[in-house]
């Protein structure tokens, strides 16, 4: 063919042309908007571009620092993350160990734990909201009929109960994802280690703490980081469960940003919020990549 260029050069050009559509689309959908958000956050402008962009420096950020509702949403987000992740991790490890056993009906069991992950969070949340319902929900029906309580519990109407209810939905949905990742790690542990352990007279519990857990460090770390980043940007869960309520007790950072942008129609201030959120999550993702790189 074209012998004017070296083999390597032609290969590079072909490769670049294969990568180009992907890089272009990612640049348009993911990278450019972030840059634009940064620009928006430093200025005052109108949505449709009818008014010229006016640079205001750190004004929005200064306002953000004094914004109680912003700090509330940070606190909500981190509380939610800090409570749900350890629970998911414990349940995930438990489920993974369970699913690693061989028993009849294992296929069904694995499918069962996969379903909550596979369904849309928004719709999962609706299912739970229906069960939490103060007047007609399943939980209150059972609690009232069995006499545990004599007045219906307002799950979503109390600050702490609402947070707790939200955590339950998240844990229900994502423990299975944790379990699957950890299960893959479990299956890569050589069986003869357990046989050696048995020869040494280890109990089941000792097998778990002496062999399984130490060898699962890697997968657990991966699962933890992926899930933390997910939890830090949680949106449709509070959107559908409580709409951030009662008042703002479950208003996550994402939800607050959304409301500022689309309910209060303040794109510039909203942009400042999402930039902060982006920085927090991006720092975490860099840590994630760093951890993975050092592992390999």
């Amino acid at each position: 063919m074209n012998a004017a260029y070296s083999l390597d050069h032609r290969r590079q050009m072909t490769g670049m042309s294969f990568v180009a559509p992907t890089v272009l689309l990612i640049a348009i959908i993911l990278i450019y908007p972030i840059i634009q958000s940064v620009v928006l956050s430093f200025g005052q402008s109108s949505i449709d571009g009818s008014e010229p962009y006016e640079f205001v420096g750190f004004a929005h950020y200064a306002k953000l620092m004094g914004d109680e509702r912003f700090w509330n949403s940070m606190a909500v987000t981190f509380t939610f993350t800090a409570i749900s992740i350890p629970l998911e991790l414990m349940l995930g490890i438990g489920l993974a160990v369970l699913l690693n056993e061989s028993f009849r009906g294992k296929g069904i069991a694995r499918l069962a734990v996969l379903f909550p992950w596979a369904l849309p969070t928004a719709l999962n949340t609706l299912m739970w909201r229906w069960m939490y319902n103060a007047d007609y929900g399943l939980f209150n029906a059972v609690a009232l009929q069995s006499g545990i309580v004599d007045r219906p519990i307002n799950f979503l109407g109390d600050e702490w109960l609402a947070m707790f209810s939200m955590v339950v939905v998240a844990v229900w949905k994502t423990s299975s994802f944790m379990a699957l990742i950890i299960l893959a790690g479990l299956q890569s542990i050589p069986r003869d280690l357990y046989e050696a352990g048995r020869m040494d007279g280890m109990s089941r519990w000792q097998e778990f703490t002496q062999i399984t857990l130490p060898l699962l460090k890697g997968p657990i770390l991966v699962a933890l980081i992926i899930r933390s980043m997910d939890a830090l940007r949680t949106f449709e869960l509070p959107f559908n469960l409580t709409d951030g309520g009662p008042v703002i007790a479950t208003e996550s950072l994402s939800l607050y940003a959304y409301k500022v942008i689309f309910d209060f129609i303040d794109f510039n201030f909203g942009a400042a919020i999402v930039v902060v959120q982006f920085l927090v999550i991006f720092a975490m993702s860099l840590a994630y990549i760093f951890v993975l790189r050092t592992r390999n």
Binding site: M1, A3, A4, Y5, S6, L7
Partner: peptide
């Protein structure tokens, strides 16, 4: 043949 494609 340095810059020639394998097939050629």
């Amino acid at each position: 043949m340095n810059a020639v494609d394998p097939k050629d």
